[in-house]
């Protein structure tokens, strides 16, 4: 990066913009998990509610990791506005399916930033994002495993399925 701003910033400005969009995506995911936790909490689905409260916290932690990374590297992290959070769900299974879709979107978005960082020779961001790629792989695996439990226990009472789901 051979511009005047290289003296102030370690990361590439285009990558910084994408990282700021990622913060918004993670915060939206956090808010979405909170809505799911509330749905489960109201229906006394104890394991699922704990799982989604934890997920909401984790997504916020991811956002904060990116937030501090941008500022630590001379950029400007933007606090996002979170709008249009869905609080209306049809079933517990639908909630987990939505969660998997959400995780896939987050993964794809991280891949996009990773590719851009590589294209722009932004090695600092590239290394930073490696943790997120492993983390997303784990998150997707967790969601898929839960959906498998629904397939295996099809027809069983919802409370019984919930008892066999992870709390975190």
């Amino acid at each position: 990066m051979k511009t005047a701003i290289r003296k102030q910033m370690t990361i590439n400005p285009v990558v910084m913009d994408l990282l700021n969009s990622q913060i918004a995506l993670e915060m939206k995911a956090s808010a979405s998990y909170l809505a799911m936790a509330s749905w489960c909490d109201q229906r006394e689905l104890i394991n699922s509610k704990s799982f989604f409260y934890k997920q909401a916290e984790e997504e916020r932690e991811h956002a904060m990791k990116i937030f501090t990374f941008i500022n630590d590297n001379g950029g400007a992290a933007i606090s996002p506005s979170v709008e249009n959070v869905n609080n209306d769900f049809e079933s517990l299974r639908a909630i987990y399916e939505t969660s998997l879709e959400q995780e896939i979107n987050v993964t794809e978005s991280i891949f996009k930033i990773f590719k851009t960082a590589r294209k722009e020779d932004d090695f600092v961001t590239e290394v930073f994002l490696q943790w997120f790629i492993s983390e997303q792989s784990e998150e997707e695996d967790t969601m898929r495993s839960i959906i498998d439990v629904f397939d295996l226990m099809e027809g069983m009472p919802l409370k019984m399925i919930d008892e066999r789901l992870p709390k975190e």
Partner: peptide, 8 residues
């Protein structure tokens, strides 16, 4: 253009 990275 001020923020653009010029590559040799």
């Amino acid at each position: 253009s001020f923020f653009y990275s010029f590559k040799s």
